[in-house]
Design a protein around this nucleic acid. Sequence first.
DNA 1: CACTATTGTGAGTAATAGCTCAGCTGTTTG
DNA 2: CAAACAGCTGAGCTATTACTCACAATAGTG
Lengths: 206, 206
Amino acid sequence: MPSTDRRLQPRRKPRQVRAELTRDRVLTAAAHVFAEHGYASGTTNRIAERARISIGSLYQYFPNKDAILAELLVRHIDRGTWTQAEQLDLSPGSLEATVRALVGDAIANHRDDPQLLRIMIEEAPVSQELLDTIARHERKRVDQVRDLLARHPDVHIQDLDPAAELIVFTVETNTHKLMAYPRTTPVETFENELVAMVTRYLRGDQ
Amino acid sequence: MPSTDRRLQPRRKPRQVRAELTRDRVLTAAAHVFAEHGYASGTTNRIAERARISIGSLYQYFPNKDAILAELLVRHIDRGTWTQAEQLDLSPGSLEATVRALVGDAIANHRDDPQLLRIMIEEAPVSQELLDTIARHERKRVDQVRDLLARHPDVHIQDLDPAAELIVFTVETNTHKLMAYPRTTPVETFENELVAMVTRYLRGDQ
DNA sequence: CACTATTGTGAGTAATAGCTCAGCTGTTTG
DNA sequence: CAAACAGCTGAGCTATTACTCACAATAGTG
């Protein structure tokens, strides 16, 4: 627990292939361990054990525990693609189809490991740097969605900025809940309702 | 860190007034400390210090650290009132007014200490018991909203159950975000958009 | 006032977990 | 092949922190 002087850089950068491999082993192991035990109980020793490397090696490439989770988060963010939405950006369809694409992308981006994502979002230590990264990413996403809405003829909203923000957040968290927690009712039902809600909202008054 | 055999009961129940007072001091102190430092860094010693009592006294009335936060959460839940919505339950108005009442209540319930709530929701140790309490509470709330919707003539939704669940969750989290994180744009704007979204959704197709 | 029950105290304990470092094993290079 | 470099090891150091307990102080009671 001693977060002494908060080293920010790892003491070593991988130069050989095996080192790169070790680094990856740590990350995959960490993803599993965090998802299974949560952040607090996902100890660095446990991660090293799971990665089948020694605790010392772990600290060669990560300055501290927080950095591991931070990198996992950044990777998740970078990996996030919005393929369906981009498709529509080129050849737009009905408003409902557009919204459905947005929701579909969100769900696709959470398919991998919803548990881990829950941990990352709910238990991640919030360094200012990480917060900034997330905020920047969200801003970009909001802009993207706003532009998409701006170009669609069926959208009847005065101020698109808060609308886009509302939609991105609502879709994100609902998807998140949908995936992370087990449901009795089928996922499609909720997906449909979510799509309906957003679509009707965008279609405007009445 | 040694959560040995997880004692569930405190070793003592308050019998004199001063004891009750001490207990309350702990809770208020804990609320402040958790809100300020987060759960993990909100140590029991810090809480005791802030409450101006000794660490020993703290452990007279709470079996462990988790129990303190659990009680704070339970108190928050119990305190949560839905006055505006109840009002409308008796004499319903327009659909928009009804939705606005729901949102208004949600915001009112988060006025006190949004930071603390964030901590409680995001960093709380999730004991099964606590999870059950929360789930039970949410279930009750969803049922309440579903009944409210069922009685309103302007609601055009086939399956009210997922709709109520979607609305409760969406309103809750959006409110939550609205209150916990500082905004540049005025709160009312988002409130209006949220109300609009839910209203149009409920009004049904087209 | 004496006796008991209740409440308060805080130095100290035990366990935990992040992290280091001295030395070893592999890999590359001239 | 040998020197230099890169990577790996894991026992153990250090700091932290939830929690205990023997004792002191205060309140209640007859």
